[in-house]
Design a protein around this nucleic acid. Structure first.
Length: 557
RNA sequence: UGCCUGAUAGUAUAACGGUAGUACGACAGACUCUGACUCUGUUUGUCUUGGUUCGAAUCCAGGUCAGGCAACCA
């Protein structure tokens, strides 16, 4: 199959650059997170793009923390970001920090002052905003704009020395207050913040703005392709202006559309709110679209990378359907996850003609999709647990499960026939009675019978009690961020259902956090770190597709 | 009423002047010791109006719609 995937527009640019030698035959990208939150699946797209591009074209990718705002940043975030990138399967060339360049950035600023292209501003934030004009009306020049180079140099040095309070002075680029691009109206380069920085400590009290740090950092590192999201398009002329006036390595910026997923929010601000206001258990809550949340939910790195590759890279806004992510993980886990029997909503089933006290070891395939997965033994006895929904006293048409007089196969075991039930005072079924066909044993069935349904089970005396956490989408609407009012009012109150006492097959007692299984007919589950030696905890990653659920929902209408 | 992006099935993406294709979803069926998987089939699309051309999703012009831009955030 020589079917080649067509190149995305950034790959096309890279190939052109490589062909015409404009980057010296090099590809050096960077992934530049601000360490003020955890990475989410939107970042994964950027990571896959940046690292993937470098891999494809024999280049490299730097990890650079954009840590120019000390009040929002923290080393906790630095650590989690590192871990998540590694987990996704990528290795960076150099680990760098914008704060590594503070001294050099300061010199750059001095250079621009000397060229008469930067000046110290006295105005307050409000005054600066007022002088800036609006998108449809030009701004006006600040009185400070005409300060002499000498005075600017002196004032800027005194800013650095800490002679001024926060907000008292700023350094601005002298460009064009009438520019149709608001970002070119004498943008701020430096502001005063007497704040402790997570890496530079109290060494600095002036910090460069994004626009005077990002492009310069790219240039210092000789980044060839600086890839960012669409909202930075209007910054590009400024990015280029600084590089030109500073006469430094010409990195170039390219923009792509960020990834959006429906039924969730992606902005760091909103995710942070969910965590801080305890709507979720933490940044790694399995309902979160964070890398750590998806990991805990049971998503694999490969499935996330796969999603990022499937959605492509382009410049139009998009919202990816959650079902595509689910497809990616099901596709992988179907091939790799061992099957197991787990009864989530147990009801007791007694086989009246099976000898009491007898225990058989039955053979069970670990994964029919993987011939090398081997098999395991399952204990079988006269008292089992089956799923409550697998028995109905008055079943509708096309119900291929157990009912009075109905036959069904117990997976890997025998065909049984429903005989009767026992109920409590409220009419709830407490025990189902059935008979089995000894000659119908799996692997050696001589009964000549075929039944339409097969159900899962566990032996009551051998089953292990487990906690199972069932997750659903975090929000009830497709785009909670775009709805009127507070996005948190659209939180799905049933997004987490905890089953304290499910029963799983005995072998699962040995499962370790991170292990993944397909609970037959129920979905894919992974072992949560909250598990204890005696009681495993399983997170449902995703359900299996369920044709019967659709069928019965249709019938209910 | 300025500047900048963008617009192809429900969603996402391809076609780079020459048959509008792929994936996910949905629907129908086959198979099944998982109502899973797999397989088969069906459905739905080039924002609009002109122009250039033998030929336009693609090039040009106008319009419409959507998103972004006026933080001492990134």
């Amino acid at each position: 199959m020589s079917e080649e995937r067509s190149l995305n527009f950034i790959e096309q640019i890279v190939e052109e650059d490589l062909a015409n030698g404009s980057t010296g035959g090099r590809v050096l990208t960077r992934f530049p997170p601000e360490p003020n939150g955890y990475l989410h699946i939107g970042h994964a797209k950027s990571i896959v793009l940046n690292f993937g591009l470098a891999q494809k074209y024999n280049g490299a990718t730097n990890l650079r923390f954009d840590d120019t705002n000390p009040v929002t940043e923290d080393t906790e975030y630095v650590d989690s970001i590192r871990e998540d990138i590694k987990w996704l399967g990528f290795t960076w060339e150099k680990e760098l920090y914008a704060s590594d360049y503070f001294e050099q950035l300061y010199e750059f600023a001095v250079k621009l002052i000397k060229k008469g292209l930067a000046y110290v501003e006295d105005a307050t934030a409000e005054e600066i905003a007022a002088m800036k004009g609006t998108p449809t009306t030009p701004g006006v020049n600040s009185p400070c704009r005409s300060r002499s180079v000498e005075e600017n140099l002196d004032l800027f040095e005194r800013m650095r020395k800490g002679e001024f309070k926060d907000g008292e002075k700023t350094l601005r680029a002298k460009i064009d207050m009438a520019s149709p691009n608001m970002h070119m109206r004498d943008p701020l380069m430096y502001r005063i913040k007497h704040a402790h920085h997570h890496r530079t400590g109290d060494k600095w009290c002036i910090y460069p703005m994004y626009d005077f740090a990002h492009g310069q950092s790219d240039s210092i590192e000789n980044i060839t392709h600086s890839i960012c999201t669409l909202e930075f398009i209007p910054h590009r002329p400024l990015y280029d202006w600084f590089i030109k006036e500073l006469d430094i390595y010409p990195s170039h910026q390219y923009e792509f559309a960020r990834l959006n997923l429906n039924y969730t929010v992606m902005s760091k601000r909103k995710l942070k709110q969910l965590v801080e206001e305890k709507h979720v258990a933490g940044w790694d809550d399995p309902r979160m679209p964070t890398i750590s949340g998806l990991r805990r939910r049971g998503y694999t790195a490969a499935s996330i990378r796969n999603l990022c590759e499937r959605v492509g890279v382009q410049k139009r806004d998009n919202v990816i359907e959650y079902s595509l992510l689910e497809f990616c993980i099901r596709e992988e886990l179907n091939k790799t996850a061992n099957r197991a029997m787990a009864v989530l909503d147990p009801v007791k089933l007694v086989i009246t003609n099976y000898p009491e006290g007898q225990v058989e070891e039955l053979e069970a395939e670990n994964n029919p999709e993987d011939p090398n997965s081997g098999s395991r033994k399952l204990p079988f006895s006269n008292t089992l647990y089956i799923e409550r929904e697998d028995f109905m006293e008055n079943p509708p048409k096309k119900y291929f499960r157990l009912g009075p007089g109905m036959m069904v196969r117990l997976k890997n075991a025998y065909i049984i026939k429903g005989e009767g039930v026992e109920k409590d005072a409220d009419g709830n079924i407490t025990t189902i009675y059935a008979t089995y066909l000894p000659e119908s044993k799996s692997g050696g069935d001589s009964s000549g019978l075929t039944v339409k349904g097969t159900i899962h089970w566990v032996s009551a005396a051998h089953a292990v009690a487990a906690e199972v956490r069932l997750y659903d989408r975090l929000f009830t609407v497709e785009n909670p961020g775009a709805e009127e009012g507070d996005f948190k009012s659209f939180i799905n109150k049933d997004s987490l259902q905890v089953i304290e006492n499910a029963y799983v097959e005995p072998g699962l007692l040995q499962a370790k956090p991170g292990d993944r299984f397909q609970f037959m007919r129920k979905g894919y589950f992974s072992v949560d770190p909250d598990s204890t030696p005696g009681k495993p905890v399983f997170n449902r990653t995703v359900t299996l597709k369920d044709a019967w659920a659709k069928e019965s929902a249709k019938a209910a209408k």
